[in-house]
Each structure stands twice: as structure tokens, then as C-alpha cells.
Simulated scan of single mutants.
Amino acid sequence: MVEANKPVPKGGFFRLLKTVFWSFFGVRRRSDFENDVKLNPLHVIAAGFIGMALFIIVLLVVVRLVVG
């Protein structure tokens, strides 16, 4: 149950990073999912692409270290 008088904090940069990070693992709390309304969808998409690029770069570096 959500209290009507309880203010929901506006989404910030670290909250956006946290949202994208946990989304990669598919693990989210229902309360976090309900509060995602405060986040800008364009920022979430951009952070998702940046996270994906970083993940691919880390994988490539690990593979090069193991293979070569």
C-alpha cells in the first residue's frame, strides 16, 4: 500500500544507473519498478546503450587476456 502523503523522490543520476544496472540482471523490487515513472525514458535508453557498450568492452578485454 502506498501512502498518499509520502513524497516520491525525483529520479537522479545514480538512481538511473542503479535502475539500468539491476535491469541487466533482471532483478528489481516492485517498489523500484513503481517509482520508475519519475525517470526520463530517453535517459534510461541512453544509459542502457552505454551499459551495453561497457559490458561488451569488458567481455572483449577479458577474452583477449585469456586467449592472448
Rank of each mutant, 00 (worst) to 15 (best):
G48M: 09
F55K: 15
F14G: 02
F13P: 03
R28N: 05
I56R: 10
L17N: 08
V62P: 01
L16P: 00
V58G: 11
L16K: 07
A53T: 11
V58F: 12
A53G: 12
I57M: 13
L42P: 00
G11E: 01
V2A: 13
I45R: 13
G48Q: 04
L16Q: 04
D36H: 07
F14C: 03
S23W: 06
I50V: 14
A47Y: 01
V8D: 10
L17S: 05
K18D: 10
V61D: 05
K6A: 08
D32I: 01
K6Y: 01
N40K: 12
K18M: 10
V27R: 15
L42H: 09
V44C: 06
V63C: 02
L60I: 10
N35F: 01
E34W: 06
L59F: 10
I56F: 10
M1V: 01
G26W: 04
A47C: 08
V63L: 14
F49G: 06
R64L: 14
V62Y: 02
A46G: 12
H43K: 12
K18I: 00
V27H: 09
L39A: 04
F14M: 14
L39W: 06
L54C: 08
G68M: 07
I50Y: 05
M1R: 14
K10P: 00
R29V: 01
L39V: 00
V8L: 12
N5D: 14
D36Y: 10
A4K: 15
F21W: 13
K18F: 11
M52R: 11
N40C: 07
P41T: 01
G26T: 04
V58N: 12
P7C: 04
V61S: 12
V2Y: 07
H43S: 13
I56P: 00
G68N: 13
L65F: 07
D36M: 15
V20T: 01
R28Q: 08
V8Y: 06
A4P: 09
R28V: 02
S23C: 09
F55G: 07
F49D: 00
V67I: 15
F33L: 15
R30G: 03
K38W: 03
I57D: 04
G11C: 15
I56M: 11
I45G: 06
F13M: 11
T19W: 15
V61K: 15
H43P: 00
V8G: 03
V8P: 00
R30K: 14
L39N: 12
G11I: 02
R15E: 11
F24D: 01
V37F: 08
V27L: 11
T19P: 00
M52K: 12
V37M: 07
V27D: 04
V58S: 13
R64V: 14
G12N: 13
A47P: 05
F55D: 06
N5E: 12
L16G: 02
V44L: 15
L60C: 08
P41L: 07
P9F: 02
L54Q: 05
P41H: 09
H43F: 07
F55M: 13
A46P: 04
L65T: 04
L65E: 06
V58Q: 14
V37I: 10
K10E: 08
A53K: 06
F25H: 04
L39H: 14
